[in-house]
Write a protein that binds this DNA or RNA. Sequence first.
DNA 1: CGACTGAGAATTGTCAACAATTGACAATTA
DNA 2: TAATTGTCAATTGTTGACAATTCTCAGTCG
Lengths: 229, 229
Amino acid sequence: MNQAPAPTVLQLVQANSLPALVQVEIEQLILRGELAVGQRVNESELAARFGTSRGPIREALRALEESRLVRSEKNRGVFVREISVAEADQIYDVREALDQLIGERVAERVTPAQLRSLQGVLAEMDAATVKRDVKTYHALNLKFHDMLVDFAGNARLTETYRLLTRGLLLFRLRGLQDGGGFAVSNKEHKAVVQAVAAHDGARAGRLLREHAVESRARMHKAAAQSPRE
Amino acid sequence: MNQAPAPTVLQLVQANSLPALVQVEIEQLILRGELAVGQRVNESELAARFGTSRGPIREALRALEESRLVRSEKNRGVFVREISVAEADQIYDVREALDQLIGERVAERVTPAQLRSLQGVLAEMDAATVKRDVKTYHALNLKFHDMLVDFAGNARLTETYRLLTRGLLLFRLRGLQDGGGFAVSNKEHKAVVQAVAAHDGARAGRLLREHAVESRARMHKAAAQSPRE
DNA sequence: CGACTGAGAATTGTCAACAATTGACAATTA
DNA sequence: TAATTGTCAATTGTTGACAATTCTCAGTCG
């Protein structure tokens, strides 16, 4: 399970059309912050960058609009979406409910191998914490939650969850990440994994939900310190 | 609240570009079953039908693909998405969690006016039940749940919920709707509204979740009787 | 009779050009 | 000077044409 057999570039190009490829590329651009939040996206520029015409770019942008990564104003262009604290709060409302579900499901169906990889990431996060390596920690944190939702074994849940948390990523890109508190965060992760290892669905669900609640609180704290808004 | 001030056609055309307009149009085509589930969608045909070129059609289809209403195969076209019982089950997993959240939130924030409109729909559903008017009942049922999620006051929750339940609609379009059991269903609705009226969040949440669970069971029953699959 | 083959039609993928709209700034007017 | 109008460059919206791929269906062969 969870072993996507690494498709070659050739297969990728043959299976996906230009718009699909361009879409993930633009997605990366946004998620890596190369396209700043709020910034206008220039179609011709992207077309030149990827060596295509504007058609495929427009299709990709339309898809990204539907997934809420960009918004579009008629005759004015598409903009990388910004997200307010209020919107982040709404996302967290939903995320908390989903995290509970994830915890329950994972505790029920987790395999020993999956458990080991979870614990592996936990250890890596500990290492990053010691080194005060915020960037690595964040990447691992994402990976950890991605693995959890994957292990829940519900593709639609995964899709829904990723869509929501990606919105939260836009928030972090605005610079509103909590510098501290990630040692605390990993303590919560460990408690979750412990409950998962014990196959205690109720407890894992409760703990993962609480983790989301704490995570929301940390976001608020960071937002309060932030200059803007 | 909830009073969108009926935009004129002029405003619509000025605010939305062709792809956006076409998108909702195609969406209607699918949801009304004029484009059968599983059927291939012909770009040129749609372009002719809407009096545009294929560009806007393709953009709209890309968006619909992202919202999972269609799927696309390279060089072969886009198809109205089918949904298996297994997938419907996954959607229900998520929906149950969201319905609980919806029940809780609505019970907390419902206004007297909103309560009255909920009860109004309930009465209409009763009338449809007496008349054995399945079509009207289904429409009202949709409206009821739409109102509930709206009254929860979380735009992102609404969006997420609608995305999921629309997937379920594809299932119903396959002919797998439960003929009977809608009198029972409305009993459950009434219990929910009662809890909402009492501002009992925990109970409303529990009841709405259970309603989703029952609804899933009814789907299974209908699927078992269905010829295909 | 069934499986292959290979035009030819139908359809999708991509592009480049044209039309429409916007935003900025200069020119004009009160 | 402030407000308005006119003009122009930049950008988006839309189209029609062409290339590439898939599908259809005779015709052929074993």
